[in-house]
Amino acid sequence: MPALPLGYLPETSEPAPPTVPAEPVPAAAPEPPHRAVRPARPYKPAKPAKPARPAPRAKPRKHPPAKSKSRPVPARSYDMAALCEAARGMVSPSIVALCH
């Protein structure tokens, strides 16, 4: 099949030389119907680009409230009365004053 032009050829004042087909075409073969060619659409200028909007601020992540750790049970207070009594006269009075 010979290559066809993609658009209309300009009009010339000289007649075109006759072309010799490369292969003989049977006379009974009908030509396919040609599609109607629409004229090209006029140039439409591109729309100006919109300025980019800044990205919204990141929202703080929602964390579940921290579980409070159970506090250790306070140790039993020891009876220091006997120790404080024994410390008198042996240890500095300022240390003995800390006994309650």
Rank of each mutant, 00 (worst) to 15 (best):
A27L: 11
Y43C: 07
A28Q: 14
A40Q: 12
P56K: 15
E23Y: 15
P74T: 07
S70W: 14
R38I: 06
A27W: 07
R41Q: 13
P54H: 05
R35I: 02
R53T: 06
R57T: 05
S70A: 15
R38Q: 12
T19N: 05
Y78R: 13
A58P: 08
E11Q: 13
P72E: 04
P72Y: 09
K50M: 04
R61P: 02
V25K: 10
K67E: 11
K62N: 12
P17G: 03
R76V: 02
P15V: 09
A66S: 11
P17F: 03
S68L: 11
E23H: 07
V20Q: 13
V73S: 07
P65V: 02
P32C: 01
P10V: 03
A40K: 15
E31F: 05
E31P: 05
P42D: 04
K50A: 12
P56C: 00
A46H: 09
A16V: 00
K69S: 14
H34Y: 11
K44L: 07
Y43A: 11
V20K: 14
V25C: 09
P65F: 04
A81C: 02
A36Q: 13
A36H: 14
A55P: 00
S70T: 15
M80V: 14
P60C: 01
S68W: 12
E14P: 00
P18S: 10
P33M: 02
V73P: 03
V73D: 10
P42A: 04
P39T: 07
P65G: 07
P51W: 00
P21R: 15
P42L: 05
A66Q: 13
A66M: 12
P72S: 04
K44T: 08
K62G: 09
P17E: 09
R53F: 02
A49Y: 13
A81L: 08
D79K: 09
A81W: 03
S77G: 12
R38T: 08
H63D: 13
S77D: 15
Y43V: 10
E31H: 01
R53A: 09
E31N: 10
A55E: 03
E14G: 04
